[in-house]
Simulated scan of single mutants.
Amino acid sequence: MAAVIASRVHELTVQRRPFVHATVVRAQQPTSAVPGDDAVILDDGSIEGFVGGVCAETSVRAAALDTLRDGQTLLLRVLPDGADAFPQAPGALVVVNPCLSGGAIEIFLRPVLPRPLLGVAGTATPIGAAVAELAEFLELEISKPMVYAGASAVVVAGLGRDDEGAIRAALDAGVPLIALVASRTRSVAVLDSLGLTEAERARVRPHAGLDIGARTHREIALSVLAEIIREIRTGGVTPPPVAPAAAPAAAAGEGRNLLPLADISEMSDMEVPRTAVDPVCGMTVVVGADTPHAAVDGVEHWFCCVRCRDSFVAAR
């Protein structure tokens, strides 16, 4: 199973699909999981792999989706009902799961988010080459030439070599930030020649880069990327959503090293899975096709496990 999950982690990373890698680090009998068991939780709440029975999965699924939203790693400790209190600590979350048959389990949740995608037009120029070189050092992912779908930003550094075409391509791809490397005078001339709408023009940064007194090609590249990173980090850039590649069937037997500059902004357009509160035990559950469910007196209810559902229905 470990080899299967490792392969899936690589595949999802290549696909640029957000997910959480969950690994059991400690388990107490009689829980069914053992240290080393792992799984991936996708952005739709589905789980591939094994980190415990259905009751433990309920807690893992809810916590994993939270880590996708904030990008932070988390140590999740799941206790059965009636267990001794365990102190909360930074980076850790303790939950009591009433439907656990016994035993505690600790699971490390590592969200893996796509690195920001950067387009660079004009890599043959000294400044364009310096931007690409520095972007690699900063662990930004460089898109293929003139393929800008899903990019957080595009740097146009052709220095007069079809800058207009690169800007138009980036605008048409929905790129939210286009950094034009040009003097103020030429920037105005380039933008005026394109006949942009007010909304399109607002997405282009003429004479891009923070004012750091840059003179050399590398210093100019640094100023441009500093402005882009500032926008990514402060939420000023939200890249257009890109549909993920189709996920293969889940592995048989299913029931931080946070990436530098992980693009949490890509999660802003994610369709957040629906949640509900189990009316028996009070747990928050993620509603999915396999979530125990019952309709009583015309009201829909979802449960953490079959036992809670059956006891609820029997009491009606």
Rank of each mutant, 00 (worst) to 15 (best):
A221T: 10
G122T: 08
A157L: 00
H217R: 08
A202W: 01
E136H: 06
M146A: 15
R161P: 08
A121V: 15
A135E: 13
L210R: 09
E227R: 02
S143E: 12
E139N: 15
S183L: 12
T123N: 11
H207P: 02
L134I: 04
T123I: 14
A121K: 09
A243N: 09
D163R: 12
A149F: 01
L171V: 05
F108A: 10
L134V: 10
A221N: 12
A208D: 01
V154N: 12
R115I: 02
R186Q: 06
S223M: 13
I220D: 05
G158I: 09
A221S: 12
R168D: 09
P241M: 07
P111L: 06
A151M: 06
L225G: 00
I178W: 06
I212L: 13
A169V: 04
P145D: 12
S183A: 12
V188L: 11
P244L: 06
A179D: 11
V188P: 01
D162I: 10
A132M: 05
I229Y: 01
G209P: 02
A179P: 13
R201T: 07
G119E: 06
G119D: 05
L117K: 14
A153H: 05
A182W: 00
R186P: 01
T123C: 07
A247P: 13
R233A: 02
P114R: 04
V237C: 06
V120N: 00
H207Q: 10
G128I: 02
E141D: 15
A151G: 05
E133W: 13
G158N: 07
A121D: 13
S193Q: 14
A124P: 14
V237Q: 11
I127K: 06
R233W: 06
G158M: 11
H217M: 03
I107E: 03
G209A: 09
T197E: 12
R110G: 08
V147C: 04
D192W: 05
R201W: 12
V131L: 08
A199Q: 14
R201V: 09
P206C: 00
V155F: 04
T123V: 15
V156K: 07
L222N: 03
G236P: 04
G195F: 11
A214C: 11
A153G: 09
P111K: 05
L140Q: 03
S193R: 15
S223G: 12
L196S: 08
H217C: 04
Y148H: 11
R218L: 02
A132T: 10
F108V: 10
A169C: 04
E133F: 13
L196C: 13
A121R: 07
A249Y: 14
S193C: 11
P176H: 06
I142C: 05
A246V: 15
H207I: 00
L113A: 02
G128D: 01
T216N: 01
L194E: 04
I228A: 06
V188D: 14
R184S: 12
V156Y: 07
E141V: 15
L138I: 10
R205A: 10
V190F: 00
G160V: 14
V237D: 09
E139F: 15
E219F: 02
S152K: 06
I229N: 00
V131C: 08
E164N: 10
V242L: 15
A243I: 12
S143T: 12
H207F: 08
A135Y: 12
L113Y: 01
A246F: 14
I220W: 08
